[in-house]
Write a protein that binds this DNA or RNA. Structure first.
Lengths: 330, 330
DNA sequence: CTGAAAGCGCTTACAG
DNA sequence: CTGAAAGCGCTTACAG
């Protein structure tokens, strides 16, 4: 282990002032500096393997070149993919990512947020869990620029957000089921007050009502921590109603419970058409045709970072991205 | 946006010195300080909503309360799960996680590593990609404590590591296939020079040789960026050899390619027993029985953080964790 | 062309 | 019980 060299060390060795070393190494006032002294300084810096102390730099400049990212659950592919690509985008701009996973716990979220504010990150990218929407004052107050991802909060003022157009995505699901000649459809969604999830079901229900008639549209809701049991009951109910021939799983977690339970109980796709939100990879192991609502994750990551660094005021507040529906296992 | 209050602001308002404010707010020299002044200072701090400047603290203390985590690919469940739990463990100890995903690119890895060293993280947790094993000098040189996860580098000196006992895990796979009455087995692995992956195949081959005889053990290797095509050829080859009745996929990525291709081509599990490494969730959608090698991800995360903060010298250098084999979809 | 000095916001040994 | 001062490693306006 070698002691880190400081500007002072270089200055001493070169017999010049610290200021001069700083100028040379940062390429400032460069035309006014004697080329030979400059070169000598650079050589000594190399020799001592000088690396600037970022902390000292931050203290002066009030910039940390760090962005704080808080996701709802990093072990979910949706967020881990996004996290990776946000990190990459940030890197490209010389930033690093301080990262936290709130696991949908508002208390944990707020603690993480406070830590990131305290550490003076230069920007925040946030997927906010249910029950944490009282955090906005703190964010605004901190003066740190931010972008919300995935989840929008239209009743909390004008917050810069990039997310899926969930209403539209679900309309597409209804259309898809219609185009597959379904006549009676059901959806299974998470019980949640998150606006984007409500929009997601609303889009499905409203569009399905038009296509199939209200009496042929059913929504089931499940509570996250009783997923397995609830889904089991629901699936039985759906299968009992022989008429239902179209099914939408509104999150990938739900799909992971529903799909195994459907195996061997119903002919897919002949008697039941299925559309699922998100998580494309795993579905490849499902032995039947199904359709998947793909969110543009890469775009979302990229756009989030872009918006974070773009402080033009006349920017649209919520940026909606469009989903695509893909057939799998054909 | 409110201006951040500093110790100076509090000192001014309270008509005391900055030092005194610092003592009070940090609970130092606390018995020597006038209780009333102390209270007055605390009140003013509250009122001003004082939050210490962590950067200034770091500059003095040389501690950043940050640990750097570089994983091979964050969008892989294996690492995203680990990342989440390392973050949680770190939080519990008052640390935050600066995060990077190297996507198996040694150049990118080394760049990330350098950034983390420059930012003076207090610890490093690293999953090192192939071809980056010349990074150890830099790490040792930096004096930052580190723990390697998942991948061990026995030829690079004594490096603190926590990883699976891969040889043993693969022996278990062979045993499992034996216990399922297989007579001829094949394995599909990634072509890689990473020691832990070599151990993984070695354990399988050596143990299988004992059980089944060399002529009944075959190893296939695939190159990562030709996965789909290679697997397709291999699967055809395996199916053509009617004798093979046991198959091991050595990474979850391989399994995701192999399993769909097996559907409807062979009776599972009657004619073909399958064991796969990692990623348990997705396999639930596979319509047949199969066995899964589970790595103790939570333990690995926890142990990594523990080791990072444990600087007892007589610590074992490599900590091996044990895999378990689970039957799924029974 | 180069340097002395102030300052970023904190901590802490020392003096009184 | 409290404060003046030095210092962490840097930057930068100013002076010469």
């Amino acid at each position: 282990m070698r002691k880190k060299a400081s500007l002072k060390d270089i200055a001493n060795k070169a017999n010049v002032s610290i200021a001069l070393v700083s100028y040379v190494l940062n390429g400032k006032n460069t035309k006014k500096i004697n080329v030979e002294t400059a070169n000598r300084i650079k050589e000594i810096a190399d020799e001592l393997q000088y690396r600037p102390n970022q902390i000292a730099k931050s203290l002066k400049s009030n910039k940390t070149y760090t962005i704080g990212l808080i996701v709802a659950d990093i072990s979910n592919f949706f967020y881990s993919y996004i996290a990776g690509h946000i990190e990459e985008e940030a890197n490209n701009r010389g930033y690093n990512v301080l990262f936290g996973s709130a696991y949908e716990d508002p208390k944990r979220f707020k603690k993480l947020l406070q830590v990131m504010i305290d550490r003076q990150v230069d920007g925040l990218i946030l997927a906010i869990p249910e029950g944490a929407d009282d955090c906005f004052d703190d964010i605004i107050d901190s003066g740190i620029s931010y972008v919300l991802i995935d989840r929008e909060f239209p009743f909390c003022g004008s917050l810069k957000t990039v997310c899926l157009d969930n209403y539209n995505a679900s309309s597409l699901v209804a259309e898809k089921l219609k185009s597959l000649n379904c006549t009676s459809v059901a959806g299974i969604a998470l019980q949640s007050n998150l606006y984007h999830l409500k929009e997601r079901t609303r889009g499905f229900v409203e569009t399905s009502n038009l296509f199939f008639g209200e009496q042929n549209v059913q929504m089931y809701r499940v509570i996250e921590d009783q997923l397995a049991e609830s889904v089991s009951t629901i699936v039985k109910d759906i299968l009992a109603q022989k008429s239902i021939d179209g099914l939408c799983c509104f999150t990938n977690k739900i799909a992971m419970e529903v799909l195994p339970q459907l195996l061997n109980k119903v002919e897919i796709p002949q008697d039941m058409r299925i559309v699922c939100f998100d998580e494309v990879e795993a579905f490849r192991l499902f032995p039947h045709k199904l359709s998947v609502v793909k969110q543009p994750l890469y775009e979302m990551s990229k756009k989030a970072v872009e918006l974070l660094f773009d402080d033009s005021k006349n920017d649209k507040v919520v940026h909606y991205l469009n989903a695509t529906i893909t057939d799998m296992n054909t």
